[in-house]
Nucleic acid binder design. Structure first.
Lengths: 99, 99
DNA sequence: GAGATATTTGCACAAATATACAATAATCAC
DNA sequence: GTGATTATTGTATATTTGTGCAAATATCTC
């Protein structure tokens, strides 16, 4: 595995590894339709500007994708892509022998 | 999901989400036998004290377990446990509809 | 015990991060 | 256009984090 790839994976895990961002991910998990930032604000107890920045991180890392719709921005999870990366890591960790 | 649980998961992901720590995990992935800290130092380009601290974080988060053997300390991956947690998250993310 | 080896802790520090509040930008409804 | 709504960006700040070097701790060998 190349260093660049490993760095990308580390960045992804770091993006997921913050309580409020993980909360946003779980919130989006449970929504079929894309959600706007205002709605997503409700699931974490921080200022909307903070949510906006967390969503930016999640977007940059490919966890989430955003589409403008009027003055709103709709966010949704890149479900299969993220799940696949997590499973791939799990497989590498789990492949062989263990207690 | 309770907040405490979510925080634990976030902490786990954060532990994995740093380049040198992830490198240590990959290194341990490829070892059958537990490795000592000195050996693990070779896979990241940092001071041994830094590796020691990273291993401490990984141990605290349950990624790795340590056993003293003389003056050495042998580290090994908690493979199945970590893999299971990652798969569980993947499943939650992936359960339903997506592009 | 003396010296060598393996690893961790104390200390210092620069960089990154999460956060709040205020200001700005973009769009809608009238 | 005016005002309201939605969301982001500017600024400041307190905290956390990753790091290296030196000192300390623990164990082994002689």
């Amino acid at each position: 595995m190349k260093n660049a790839t490993r760095q990308e994976l580390a960045d992804l895990l770091k993006a997921l590894g913050e309580f409020n961002r993980l909360s946003l991910v779980y919130e989006l998990c449970q929504c079929e339709a894309p959600q706007n930032a205002g709605c997503l604000c409700d699931c974490c107890n921080v200022d909307s500007s903070v949510v906006s920045r967390h969503l930016k991180v999640l977007t940059q890392e490919g966890v989430v994708r955003m589409e403008r719709r009027g003055r709103e921005r709709k966010y949704s999870l890149n479900r299969s892509e993220i799940a696949q990366k997590l499973r791939s890591l799990a497989d590498q960790i789990d492949t062989t022998n263990d207690t």
